[in-house]
Amino acid sequence: MRKFIYLFVFFILTGASSILAQSISMSPTRLFFTGSPGEKVTQTVTLQNSSDKDYVFNLNYKDWMREEDGNKVYLDAGSSKTSNASWMSTLENAVTVPAKSTKEIVVSMQIPATASKSAVTNSMLFFTQLPQQADQAKVQNGIGIITLFEVGLHIFYTPPGNQVKSLDITNISELSNDHAAERKVAVNIHNDGNTINDATVEFELTDTDSGKEIKLPAISISMLPDSNQTVQFSLPENISGNFLGVVIIKMAGSNDLRVGEKNFKF
């Protein structure tokens, strides 16, 4: 009996240690600010270093935008129309997170007095690992690459009056493709609300002859107001027959759904 108890404790401990694996983590991954023009608002982000080594991070801002395929593109700070990088500040430009410790960083946003009362703005704060003396290439003659790590913290500002959460399915279509084995259906979505909208997009196909249903893996999206995104669903190989395709968009923090239907012949 005692052996079993020891074994049980051992499993719990090993389980816990794998959860507490040595890592550098950032929480949260997105900061949502709101406030009136002229106001200063602050939030904190926590960096945790559970490893045995100290890490030094440089703090720097960039703008970012999302292309229609969902890919994020980073731009120089201040170059995007919706940039709020110049509103942001932290007390330090570099932070050291000692081994086995946690560091809280206060991120401040000074909303300009002239800020739009309707426009959502965004930027990203990067924590970039700085190389230390120990991080040196070991090769004598050749090419040495020092690999480093960086995490990005999304920063959003939503004016207090912006409360409309809405997405619109603008099109559902099969993508033309030479390879019949790699058929895809594209769903075009427009954020016609005035807030950042996190949602999951589901796509189900029902064979109109046999009634058989095919549910494809859901895709998560996060859209800025007045932006468009195309979500692609890969169809099962060699699918053929008449199908009814149903798109369901579930918006986070709301019971609202968006549903779209289209008939397909594959």
Partner: peptide, 8 residues
């Protein structure tokens, strides 16, 4: 993470 890749 703070590591090296070497080509010789």
């Amino acid at each position: 993470i703070g590591n090296t890749v070497d080509f010789n």
